[in-house]
Amino acid sequence: MTRDFAAGGYRYIPAVFQYSSGAAALADFEIERVRFDKLLPLAEGFARAAEYMKAANRPLTAFCACELRSPAVVDEAGFRRFNEHYVKTLAEWQIFDGTNNPVARTNVCLEVGPPKEPSFYAFSFTRPKKGATPSFVIAGGAEARGGSESYAERTVRYREVGPEAIRDKTKATVGSMEARLAAFGHGWSDTTAAQVYTIRDFHPAVTDELVNRGAARSGLTWHFARPPVIDLDFEMDCRRVSREVLV
């Protein structure tokens, strides 16, 4: 279910052309997460990431995950246009081969104070480390099931935002995170951070669908933001990294 990306020092869960469902360091590598103190426009963020990795004596192919912030939600066609633009840099870095994309990604839209253009919030890359403990980044996922159908057909409780609908969306998203963790042989007990992205009141679901399932073992970071595609309401990601830096 996973594939190795030896040039980057990590393996990944294949998904769609714009991103993978998660990246995990190979043996004797660890993942470092770098968060920008201020959002950086996409091109500038890629450039800063390249500079940072070069200074760490790492190739561009070590880039394994990113967290983006977009100006506003879009429809499916708009999402595809953005993704086709986004992967151009990954192709130039010899990461995306036109079909397979090993880079995990979260891309959400801030409800308050959004950037004027797609921007970087954070990125992750691999470093060599003998005997490193496992590290991974699980990509952002919302309440849409996998498949080739439209989002309207795949979304749990489509266009419903009542308490029970949000509970079902939360449950489905947590389940998706668990499946991705399991693909790497891990579970919630192995995570060091989990993030939630929604503008809906998900608190009634916190105890049963997050805390009791172990998703909040290291706390829970809530971002008042929407998933990037219109009519999606709840997104999550999670990770295990031993090194995090703010720049």
Rank of each mutant, 00 (worst) to 15 (best):
E92G: 04
A152W: 10
A122G: 07
P114K: 08
F96Q: 00
A205W: 01
T170L: 04
I138R: 07
N83I: 01
F125P: 08
P114R: 12
H186M: 09
D75L: 03
I166H: 04
R105Q: 14
E164Y: 05
F184W: 01
G113Y: 09
A183M: 08
F125R: 09
K129V: 14
D168E: 15
G185K: 05
E160T: 03
A132N: 12
A91T: 02
S119D: 02
S189T: 10
K130Q: 15
T133H: 14
K169C: 06
V156W: 06
P163G: 03
I138N: 08
T99V: 14
E84A: 09
D190R: 00
D201F: 03
T99H: 10
G185R: 04
R105K: 15
A183V: 07
N100M: 07
G146V: 12
F79S: 12
G140S: 13
K171G: 04
E143C: 10
G162W: 08
S176H: 12
P163D: 05
R81E: 14
Y197K: 05
F184L: 04
A152P: 06
V112F: 14
F123K: 06
F202R: 00
V161K: 12
E117D: 06
Y121I: 11
D190E: 06
S189I: 03
T173Y: 01
S189M: 05
G98D: 00
S70A: 14
A77F: 09
P71E: 03
P102Y: 00
Y86M: 08
I95H: 00
L110V: 03
W188T: 08
S150K: 13
V161I: 13
F202K: 01
E111Y: 10
G113A: 13
A91K: 05
A72G: 11
R157S: 14
G187A: 08
A165L: 01
A183T: 10
P102V: 01
H186F: 14
E164R: 14
E178M: 11
E117Y: 07
A152I: 11
M177Y: 02
D201S: 06
W93G: 00
P163L: 02
G162C: 05
A65G: 07
S70G: 11
P163M: 03
L90V: 00
K116Y: 03
F120C: 07
H186N: 05
A194L: 11
Y158S: 11
T155I: 14
N101G: 03
Y158N: 13
Y151K: 09
A144V: 10
S150I: 03
F184H: 03
A182G: 04
N101Q: 15
L90C: 00
T126Y: 10
H85M: 13
G113M: 09
A72C: 09
E92W: 00
A122L: 07
D190C: 01
V196Q: 02
F123N: 07
F120T: 04
V161W: 05
F120M: 07
A165S: 04
I166L: 03
L110A: 14
E149W: 11
I166S: 04
G187T: 09
A122P: 08
H186A: 09
V108H: 14
G140H: 12
A193D: 08
S189W: 02
A72N: 11
T133C: 12
F125V: 11
E160V: 05
A182D: 08
T126I: 13
V156D: 06
T198M: 01
T191Y: 02
